[in-house]
Computed example of a mutant assay.
Amino acid sequence: MFEAIADVITEPPRGRRGAPVRRQSRLAGREGVFWRRVSRQEARQIVFAARRYELTSRQFGARNGALGAVALEVLDLLANMVDYKTGRLDPAIETLMKRLKRSRDAIVRALKALRDHGFLDWLRRYVPTGREGRGVQVQQTSNAYRLSMPARARRLLGRYGRSAPLPDDFTHAREMQEAAITAHRQSLTLEELPLFEIGDNPLGQALARLGKAIKERESAKRTESASRFISMKNE
């Protein structure tokens, strides 16, 4: 325990050629209690809450809300990569780039947005290089990440954000998750549904435009039918 605390408050050694690793970095393997066990249900609930948070924070006419489409992609990927038994989650940014086919800048901005809004936290880490030199030679390595559920996002889930009576019952947890997703899906318009299901990407935007056109056409038909009925009644 005391060693773990010391890792946090002690300035890490300088890296190769005197270049310091980033401040507040911890030696990899000394994450202490940073990681915590998370169930599959909890991880998916965080993703679902983030999607609702994104929708509710989106201003009229804006393409993205507070998080953005890439952040939702990153969070969904992290929720699938986390070790549910230990909470271990430490993918390199290059891994996220490769899996999501996004640029480094896009991934970095997405991670920052998730942390700023309380859905993610991370711990910087360093590792020994094994090279000879003056002092201990170290270099920065991938961050340790931890999924989190901000209170304001949990409130958006309503009763679906409460703990299940039987948290170890996987079937019950899955039913609760599916019910929450179904309820939210049913509340979406034809224009919003593709963005929720597919994401704010070219395909999702194209389907959203199609949904909007269908909605406008149906509205026009109803208006036309009402006008005909009034005309026939006046005759």
Rank of each mutant, 00 (worst) to 15 (best):
L157E: 06
S187Y: 01
A43T: 02
L72A: 01
V136G: 04
L114F: 00
E192F: 02
Q177W: 11
R162H: 11
L75T: 12
R37F: 04
R51I: 01
A50H: 04
R228I: 14
V33S: 13
K212A: 14
T182A: 09
A106R: 02
D200P: 13
G15C: 00
R104A: 05
S227A: 14
I198E: 03
P165H: 06
R222A: 10
N201M: 02
M81T: 08
P13A: 06
R152G: 15
K98E: 13
E73M: 11
E132K: 10
R14I: 05
R104D: 11
I214F: 13
F60Q: 10
T56K: 09
T86Y: 01
F60T: 11
R17V: 00
F60H: 14
E218N: 15
A113I: 05
T95M: 03
G65S: 07
S25H: 03
E3W: 10
L195I: 06
Q186A: 12
S57Y: 08
H184G: 09
G161Y: 05
G133C: 13
I107Y: 09
L100K: 00
V47E: 07
I46A: 09
G65R: 09
L203Y: 02
A206D: 07
G68R: 04
R22M: 01
A69R: 00
A113P: 05
A226N: 07
E54A: 03
A151S: 03
A79N: 06
D76S: 12
A226M: 03
S103M: 02
Y145A: 02
I93E: 10
V138P: 04
V8C: 10
S163L: 14
F48R: 04
P12S: 03
E54K: 03
A144D: 02
L157Y: 12
L193N: 05
A164D: 15
S187K: 02
M149K: 00
L203C: 02
G15N: 01
R154C: 00
R37N: 15
E54V: 06
I107F: 05
L120Y: 08
N64T: 14
A66L: 12
K215W: 14
D116Y: 05
S57T: 12
A113G: 01
F48Y: 06
P150E: 00
